[in-house]
Design a protein around this nucleic acid. Structure first.
Length: 421
RNA sequence: GUGGGCGUAGCUCAGCUGGUAGAGCACUCGGUUGUGGUCCGAGAUGUCGCGGGUUCGAGCCCCGUCGCUCACCCCA
């Protein structure tokens, strides 16, 4: 029989690393929760049309990276490549935008993009994201950025930076685009690069080749085209970030791949990650809701890549410590008959809220003690015929090695004892 | 999608110019009656990613394929 492998390019998390993955994800989620965001659990597949209209047909994500298929009813379905469009769809569909604004939600889950896999770039990857819809305050922009910043701080991440810029409003961007295209037309570029520029001229700012960088050095910057209102908004964001001690750099050449971004846009870049260095990014989107058939509300949000944050944390060596054990007690039965007694006691202790486990399988005492040690439980207890007839057993502190005799009936005595420590 | 590197025990890897595989860690057991972490000893484990080919003979050479990885590209 041939072995079945996981599909190409997916990331899987299993013990012991899954503990770190869970820790990273929970830290990101906690940061959203303390800012008053509520959870949203959405489908991983949506009507293909949602992403075409929401993310933009000309984007790489939509034009060549989506997992799209026909379901049994002949509908075109797509595995979600990002989170914002689905959130908007759901908010509109359930009239959340008709209530108190802003609507503030977070989500966490798997996303799918059919790209060539690489370290930090997977075909199924995990994101934690937030969206705040229905208010265009610069304070809200900063709140969203601060959530990500707070999460990274809580993890102890250091070697990253926050890039921000403003993409202005549609009118500013149109004016800038005219001049930028004019500038690019005067450049001597190869065919592939011209094709990229035709789809999105801003892309050329992102090119890594030196000759293109030099050629683009004098290109007109979108930041210089902002109208008064957009410029004022962006200044306020900068001031507030400064007041909150959130370091940032203005990167007028930042490029985002999703069409819906407007105004404040940002990206967290980690220094130890190689090519896939963006650990999170997001921005404001003014037209998205109305494009999807909802009210004309502005929103702002981000997506953080859990896989990449985990990679970054590992690269910085801040997750090397094994997490604290979840177990209070590890039980060991001396022989077959006492095993049943131990299993019942274990069950009762768990009912009483004690986090406990026991040695399974036919292991010698030495091996069972080793298992107790590996489990990380704070206490262990060996139970044999003697203990059962005496009605008490020695509770051993695995750190100090000290033991103490404790009654086995009722088990509440043991449970209370363990909870007090 | 394009180009480069790699794929040997659970993990990290060694294996010279082709002669049918090793180390460390981890794991299991033991060091005289029922207590782990250190130490000592013993043991198990691989269709050498998969499929073809060249050869008397391939982990080592060739082709294909799958996967990983790095860069481009893209973005989380």
């Amino acid at each position: 029989m041939s072995k079945i492998q996981a599909p190409k390019g997916v990331s899987e998390y299993f013990p012991p690393r899954s503990d770190n993955f869970e820790f990273v994800r929970n830290t990101l989620i906690s940061a959203a929760k303390v800012s008053g965001y509520s959870m949203m659990e959405l489908p991983v597949f949506e009507d293909t049309e949602l992403f075409i209209r929401g993310v933009g047909e000309s984007t790489d994500v939509v034009s060549k990276e989506m997992y799209t298929f026909e379901d049994r009813g002949g509908r075109s379905i797509t595995l979600r490549p990002e989170g914002t469009a689905g959130v908007m769809r759901s908010v509109i569909e359930h009239n959340l935008d008709k209530g108190q604004l802003p609507v503030k939600v977070w989500y966490s889950g798997a996303f799918f993009r059919a790209e060539r896999p690489q370290a930090g770039r997977y075909r199924q990857f995990y994101q934690v994201g937030v969206e705040a819809i229905g208010a265009n305050d610069p304070e809200l922009d900063v709140e969203v950025i601060a959530i990500a910043h707070r999460a990274f701080m809580a993890l102890g991440l250091k070697n990253y930076r926050l890039d921000i810029t403003s993409l202005g409003d549609a009118e500013s961007r149109a004016r800038h685009r005219v001049d930028l295209v004019k500038y690019i037309d005067g450049l001597n570029l190869d065919e592939a690069t011209q094709a990229r520029a035709a789809i999105n001229p801003l892309r050329l700012f992102d090119d890594k080749r030196d000759e293109v960088r030099e050629a683009m050095a004098a290109a007109p910057l979108l930041l210089d085209y902002l109208n008064a209102e957009a410029a004022r908004h962006f200044v306020q964001v900068q001031e507030l970030l400064g007041e909150m001690n959130i370091p940032f750099v203005i990167n007028p050449k930042m490029v985002r791949g999703l069409d819906y971004y407007t105004g404040t846009t940002f990206e967290f870049v980690h220094q130890d990650l190689g090519a896939q260095s963006g650990i999170g990014g997001g921005g404001r989107y003014d037209g998205l809701m109305s494009d999807l058939g909802g009210a004309n509300l502005s929103g702002i949000g981000f997506g953080i890549g859990v896989d990449r944050v985990l990679l970054a944390a590992e690269a910085e060596g801040i997750l090397t410590d094994a997490g604290p054990s979840e177990l209070d007690l590890f039980l060991i039965a001396m022989n077959e008959p006492t095993k049943r007694f131990v299993a019942r006691a274990l069950n009762e202790l768990r009912n009483l809220g004690v986090r406990a486990d026991m040695a399974y399988g036919d292991r010698a005492l030495k091996g069972a003690m080793k298992a107790a040690d590996k489990s990380g439980a704070r206490f262990s207890m060996v139970i044999g015929d003697d203990e059962i007839s005496a009605g008490s057993a020695n509770l051993k502190d695995m750190k100090t090695g000290a033991t103490e005799s404790i009654t086995l009936s009722p088990l509440t005595v043991l449970a209370d004892q363990l909870k007090r420590r």
